[in-house]
């Protein structure tokens, strides 16, 4: 199962590198969103610094929805998802492979976004780099798991575009709350162990649920 999941993740990342969808669409979208949010809030620097973690994770959340949709669009273009389904691989392997590829893409995106935010909003990134990296990693894995799970629904029901955010956003609310709080505290240089634990337990539950339930979504 691991081999198949890795093969699938490698394939997804290779497609992403060649198609450059993340670089050409998701990243500009995310940066534009950040700039627009900054402009909407005005030039008050202390205020911006205070709300920056919230803006960051809202942006990541939207970017994750876009990346998920893209990931499953590629599978739907020529019936490839059916090909994956008709392989003897466990559906759980498909879920894990797609979640892994999505995680890597989102992490790369977050590196850029955090840098942009640090410049635009004057964030003290050096305060707790390790804690910040851990927050990003744990929140991203959970987000990718939710996306990988519900992306199937968006792919199979192409006519209803709104259904993916409707499923992903409520499921990701705990992630959003945890990640924003943890990021705020990390930037203030305070302890975030409890929040990291909460994020980690969310990831474990999300990955376990996805592994168990993916087959029910993807099979006809």
């Amino acid at each position: 199962m691991t081999g198949e999941a890795l093969a699938l993740a490698a394939k997804d990342l290779r497609l992403e590198l060649r198609g450059r969808h993340a670089v050409s669409t998701v990243l500009p979208f995310a940066v534009t969103l950040l700039v627009a949010l900054g402009l909407a809030l005005g030039p008050d620097r202390p205020l911006l610094r205070q709300v920056a973690p919230g803006l960051l994770w809202i942006t990541v959340l939207f970017a994750a929805v876009l990346a998920t949709r893209r990931s499953y669009e590629l599978e739907g273009e020529d019936g490839a998802l059916e090909g994956l389904l008709l392989s003897p691989a466990d559906p759980a392997a498909i879920f894990l492979g797609k979640a892994a590829a999505l995680s890597v893409q989102l992490l790369a995106l977050e590196v850029v976004l955090v840098t942009v935010m640090a410049l635009l909003f004057g964030l003290p990134l050096a305060a707790a780099p390790v804690a910040l990296a851990l927050v990003c990693l744990l929140a991203t894995v959970g987000l990718a798991a939710i996306g990988s799970l519900f992306g199937v629904v968006a792919q199979a029901a192409r006519t209803r575009e709104g259904v993916l955010p409707l499923l992903v956003l409520p499921a990701a609310i705990p992630l959003l709350v945890d990640a924003v709080r943890a990021t705020s505290l990390a930037l203030e240089g305070r302890d975030v162990t409890g929040w990291l634990g909460l994020l980690l337990s969310f990831d474990v539950v999300a990955l376990a649920a996805g592994t168990l339930l993916y087959g029910y979504l993807v099979e006809d």
Binding site: G3, E4, A7, L8, K11, R14, L15, R18, G19, L74, E77, D78, G79, A80, E82, G83, L84, L86, S87, P88, A89
Partner: peptide
């Protein structure tokens, strides 16, 4: 079983050889 249907199930941004290698890995 193998079904060759209307859809060819290829990834447009992979080469012919890469598409087949991916299939081989998924099917052992």
């Amino acid at each position: 079983t193998e079904l060759v249907g209307h859809q060819t199930r290829l990834y447009g941004d992979l080469s012919a050889a890469e598409n087949l290698r991916f299939v081989a890995r998924m099917h052992h």
